[in-house]
Design a protein around this nucleic acid. Sequence first.
DNA 1: TAGTGGTCTAGACCACTGG
DNA 2: CAGTGGTCTAGACCACTAT
Lengths: 237, 237
Amino acid sequence: MNDRQPGSTSPKAQLIAGEVRRRIVEREWQQGERIPDEADLAVTFGVARATVNKALQLLADEGLLDRRRRAGTRVALNPVRKAIFTIPIVREQIERAGMKYGHRVVAQRRSPIPDETAARIGVPPGREFIHLRAVHYGDERAFQFEDRWINPDSVPGLDKVDFRHQNANEWLVRNAPYLRADIAFSAENADARDARMLGVPKGQALLILHRSTWNDTGPITTVRIACHPGYVISTAD
Amino acid sequence: MNDRQPGSTSPKAQLIAGEVRRRIVEREWQQGERIPDEADLAVTFGVARATVNKALQLLADEGLLDRRRRAGTRVALNPVRKAIFTIPIVREQIERAGMKYGHRVVAQRRSPIPDETAARIGVPPGREFIHLRAVHYGDERAFQFEDRWINPDSVPGLDKVDFRHQNANEWLVRNAPYLRADIAFSAENADARDARMLGVPKGQALLILHRSTWNDTGPITTVRIACHPGYVISTAD
DNA sequence: TAGTGGTCTAGACCACTGG
DNA sequence: CAGTGGTCTAGACCACTAT
């Protein structure tokens, strides 16, 4: 009746999630403890059960709650920590940082994929893919070195594209939407090629990003991206 | 055509999201193009509008759709790709890999935080925190080296805990729920201490994880974790 | 101003699973 | 078997914003 909240948006589910989060953080509800069921909370907060459900699902997705039918909802014992990273398009990332974007293709040719790459994307070894090496620059300084394999059968018209004058990343984003993607981070010492491409000493620690994408007909592309020293991937944006 | 999912539950929202995803991937609905509004889709699919709404919000969260009031829903021009990583508790990660977990505290003392650390968590430099260095082992081999600073004011009773016989990570997880966390990945060449702690050559490329947490009263802890060579963080699980 | 997504509600039925 | 979360529905009103 008198829920007036002048001027402020008030998604009730958010408010409820915040209140539950507060009770957990302030140890009103202890780890492992069962909290009231949805119907009770709905009465307590004066909202519909669906609203409580939405709020609690939010917190369960965050890993703060464990929910099971019949067993009820408990404060998680081992809060699973999830981190969401947005994987930007290189050009946008560089331009957003106020730098001038540049792009140079080092090599483009068809060749049989190496065994390791074949295993990574789950195709028989020895198949011919399009192999592409390119460097992305920000203000003339090497930003990323990308080593990419593209499945020529994955997208019609792919054979006719000349990636020497066309950013492969962006072409693929626009022409080959994918259904599934794998992303992995690791660290490697720069080998001779990495060092040459990025203009850094051999042995320099580099953040390496592996990304592969598939659609319903099979793999589209897999790429190893070596980032310039100092590159940081963060949830903080 | 054949959306059969034998034995699997079929929440309608999931099915609808899958169908919309399919239409996008198969270019039935092109990038930038407007798709029918929720009411139309509800009729098309024979469900309530709320169900369509849920499905489309899923896809918008994935970055596949752009939705705006009054303007309608469009296939995203630059699909923003989000990756969700779960940050496991070290012990569980090691034990899940079938290895024996070990843990050794190298140092614990109060000391003033370095400027860089202070800046990272947003407190004035020079404050005294609890400084902790520890190594986590899997089957007797160094797995991670952690260098942690804990705010003594963040959790009551913290002063009395002896982390030499108590895993700091797990104690904090259970006793200091947080409201906000930042996580960042980067790569560094092992310095002398990293090398000694992990038993690797100096200069070895290491994946570095920085994590900081806050509750409503301020920072709780910030930690730099150096992972053993070969460590990979992946969405694939 | 009107069209579109955002959210809520009250009620219903179902799916799972603990006791 | 019965209690709890999972999901759906039909309807409603609101918040934004393109036109």
